[in-house]
Design a protein around this nucleic acid. Structure first.
Length: 84
RNA sequence: CAGGUACAACAGAUAGAUACUUGAUAACUCAAGAGGAAAGUCCGAGCUGCUCUAAGACAGUGUUCCAUUUAACUAAUGGCCGUAGUAAUGCGAGGGAAAGUGCAACAGAGAUUAGACUUCCGCUUCUAGUUCGCUAGAAGAGGUAAAGGUGAAAAGGUGGUGUAAGAGACCACCAGUCUCUAUAGCAAUAUAGAGAGCUUGUAAACCCAACAUGGCAGCAAGAAACAGAUGGUCAGCGUCUUAAGGGGUAGGUAACGGUAAUUACACCAUAUUUAGCUUGUAGCUACUGUUUCGCUAGAAACACUAUGUAAAUGGUGUGGUAGAUUAAUGCUAUCAAAACAAAACUCGGCUUACGUUGUACCUAACUC
RNA sequence: GGUGCCAUCGCCAAGUGGUAAGGCCGCAGCCUGCAAAGCUGCUAUCCCCAGUUCAAAUCUGGGUGGCACCU
């Protein structure tokens, strides 16, 4: 997945994107739902700002644990997680 | 056993922690929440707007065996005919080529009032032979559609009569077409009989006939409220010169420079361009933004029952808010054979994709 | 959600029922001492599946993929 992050005070906005390359409407909706569920899990420890998640082609083949690892890795890379 | 044909049913369950949409409630909470194809958008309707409309005709568009069903249909049901298959059963845009026009490549002698290349046939002329009856060869003007070969297709087929040779020219039987009569059937049609004429294909080529039909756009249709001010409109100012090309003014745009200054998008000059510019208005069938409505109880679904071969129709009963706008109905784990696939105004069909299970029926060949 | 259009060789494309033109690229040969240029030849299941027809790239129906417009 790809994450775009714009940090700013007192603004909370999230977007989830799934392009036609992923598959038909069922697969695209499932990709968005999985990302949304993961975001809700971590939303309490994130900084304020605007987030845009873009799903890539292999998202529907990957297992849940691996997707979770990737999700954390991407967040840490952009330093979006609040310390403590 | 195996293979096939038709029809029907279902479209996950359990657990965990935790979100979303709508409705009810003061709140806590409670209830409901995606398909058989929601898909393709191929037909037919409702609904909405615009346009049109006395009636009729022409044109356009569509349909095309018969009966029935339906709100309607190019749909469905049953039948007839044709066709594929051993069969169960499937498939069929299934009127007219004798109203007219067009087209039929290549090959072939000839392709639609057909045609003579090789055959076949007598006739005339010439030559040769002669048993003086004729025979053979060449040339000419004809006859012929029976044989050959070409082609998707050669103007019915077989047998006889007939003839110089032949020919539906005539006859018998057969195939096909049309008409009439009888019987069965509501009908398409089937069976039987009689007669006519002399029969290429193509109408998913133009066309003809019969029948039907206002047209176009589609909920991103359209309606209301609030806000805006692009067009329009009202008011004021301006609209010069030349025959024309062109030149010039107000106004617009702009680099360098200058002026001014708290700030400057101002002013000056210069360059370039060319008739509009400015202020108001919201009462306009043009326009922009937001919100609300349209929006879900419907020619509806399910169960039982009556009629009908069936599609379907009638009667009785039952239960019940999916209604969003980046778009909810989730996420994770386990089990399992789980596939195709996500509503966006709503219905009736068709088409295409696809997992599992069941029921009924068929069997030529193959295997035992 | 709705509406319309397109698909022919690797690329650009012509072709309104009768043997699928042409250009560029590529390959092979000729030419040349070697190349370039030039000349000759080769390369198509007309997106797929059915139907009508003697015959379909063309006509009809269905499917697949792509593009554009309405906001």
């Amino acid at each position: 997945m790809v994450l775009f992050f714009l940090p700013s005070q007192n603004i909370h906005k999230v977007g989830f994107t799934a392009t036609k390359k992923i598959g038909n409407a069922v697969k695209r909706n499932r990709a968005k739902r999985r990302l949304r569920a993961l975001f809700c899990e971590f939303s309490s420890i994130l900084q304020d700002g605007t987030y845009i998640f873009v799903a890539k082609q292999s998202i529907n083949e990957i297992a849940h644990e691996k997707l979770k690892d990737n999700f954390l890795k991407v967040l840490n890379h952009l330093k979006a997680v609040e310390k403590n």
